[in-house]
Amino acid sequence: MLAIAEVTPAWYLVLGSLLFTIGAVGLRVRRNPLVMFMCVELMLNAVTLTFVTFSRMLEDVHGQTVVVFVLVVAAAEVVVGLGIMVALLRKEPEATADDLTVLKG
């Protein structure tokens, strides 16, 4: 039983993909823009986890360094995203993602 339960790197990969999928689905189902951002963050973090796992599997450290970049990028994204969002919400305080349909067709 223990052998079965042994945590192999594949588990982390699966976990990463699950988190990624949750993030992707979350972005699809949630209407609150802020929550949608968080879903994106979740996806990025899932990838981070995958990177680290691969790094471990390949016994190559470089995969872990990527994490640093990703974090920075994610942070930058959040800043910009929130900025845009705030600008929008200032105009339409109750706006959800589904209210943004002036542009279509």
Binding site: A24, L27, R28, V29, D98, L100, K104
Partner: peptide, 17 residues
Amino acid sequence: LRLVQTGFVRSYALGLT
């Protein structure tokens, strides 16, 4: 085809998916 372009960002995400 225009009907697909609903304007809902979430449906765009679906399309992307």
